[in-house]
């Protein structure tokens, strides 16, 4: 396979602030590539440089063989962009919006009409195409937003947080549309999100980005393998090197380290959301146990602590997923 996108040490600075600190990655033809990171990590800035919205401070990229610094006019014809904002004209109908964006890409007459009908079908809004956009639900607006980015049949499609503020039904619809575009039309897609589940569902490969830098990049399988079988956070009344060594030496345990207190042990996705507003669990010592096999490691850890008369003050078990990978790599949650 050949790369449709090759990013080489791209940098964006605003004065002394480095929004993007030299990211490099590539996207293969027909691949769905994820950029996962919390808000402010530099995902949108990276996409903005690749789509010609802002100029890079340093570095470059090639899209479809064209350099973004010297051949942006060609690059723009290949790219499609769905910005994070609802970049639509609310008083105009969906059809009028799509007609406008189509004309901007040089489409006219019958071809424009056919493209508009085509993208309306993709986002399933043909029936309500003549209604003003401001009369739509949030999910429907998001779908028109996607349709507007597709009108010129881009080869490389950038979707920047396309599901923000969307109801579950529309979110599923967007997922289906993205997968169909990739599978049926062979479209290469760069998908940014701070929702782990979306990236896990849609993407072949993922770059985890934080504070303007890519901190890990691989397939989801390989990234979660970084955590082995998972992570167990154990709260103890006290901890010393002997206990740590004992935990690390247990069967099914890869490593055991202390975590600076107080850090709330992370929970599952749903639990993390619910716990977001609560104060962190108070522990005198927190031990992070990376497991080779989660279930077996839990049994071994609890038995060991009982045998050594250690009081357990808390216990959190993380399944191996991108959220726990991000936490493992940065010490913070995706949505902090």
């Amino acid at each position: 396979m050949t790369a449709i996108l090759e990013v080489d040490n791209l940098v964006k600075k605003y004065g002394d602030f480095e929004a993007v600190g030299g990211v490099s990655f590539s996207v293969e033809q027909g691949e769905v590539f994820g950029l996962l990171g919390p808000n402010g990590a530099g995902k949108t800035q990276t996409i903005s440089m690749l789509t010609g919205v802002i100029e890079p401070t340093a570095g470059t990229a090639r899209i479809g063989g064209y350099d973004i610094r010297s051949q942006m006019d060609q690059v723009k014809k290949i790219n499609g962009l769905v910005p994070q904002d609802l970049a639509l004209y609310p008083t105009l109908s969906a059809r009028a919006n799509l007609n406008f964006f189509g004309r901007i890409y040089g489409l006219r007459g019958k071809e424009l009409k056919e493209r508009v009908e085509d993208v309306l079908r993709i986002v399933a809004l043909t029936d309500r195409a003549d209604q003003a956009v401001d009369k739509y639900s949030g999910g429907m607006k998001r779908r028109v937003n996607i349709a507007a980015g597709l009108i010129h049949h881009p080869k490389l499609f950038f979707l920047d947080e396309p599901t923000v503020g969307v109801d579950p039904q529309s979110r599923n619809h967007i997922f289906e549309s993205v997968l169909r575009l990739n599978r049926e039309r062979g479209m290469s897609i760069v998908y940014t999100s701070h929702y782990m589940e979306e990236v896990e569902l849609l993407c072949n490969r993922v770059a985890i980005i934080d504070q303007g830098k890519i901190i890990a990049m691989d397939t989801i399988k390989n990234l979660t393998a970084l955590l082995g079988g998972g992570v167990i956070y154990v709260g103890l009344a006290r901890v010393d090197d002997e206990i740590l060594a004992g935990l690390a030496g247990l069967p099914a345990v890869a490593e055991a380290t202390t975590v600076p207190s107080p850090v709330a042990p992370p929970a599952s996705e749903e639990q993390a959301l619910e716990a977001a507003d609560r104060p962190p669990v108070s522990t005198e010592a927190l031990v992070k146990v990376v497991a080779k096999q989660n279930q077996q490691a839990i049994v071994n850890v609890i038995n060991y602590l009982n045998e050594h008369n250690q009081n357990l003050t808390s216990l959190e078990i993380l399944e191996p997923n991108l959220e726990s990978v991000f936490l493992h790599l940065t010490g913070k949650k995706l949505r902090e």
Partner: peptide, 13 residues
């Protein structure tokens, strides 16, 4: 404000 300016900047104009 609505972000369409970014979309136009990303278009080949």
């Amino acid at each position: 404000k609505v972000g369409s300016f970014r979309r136009l900047l990303a278009a080949p104009i």
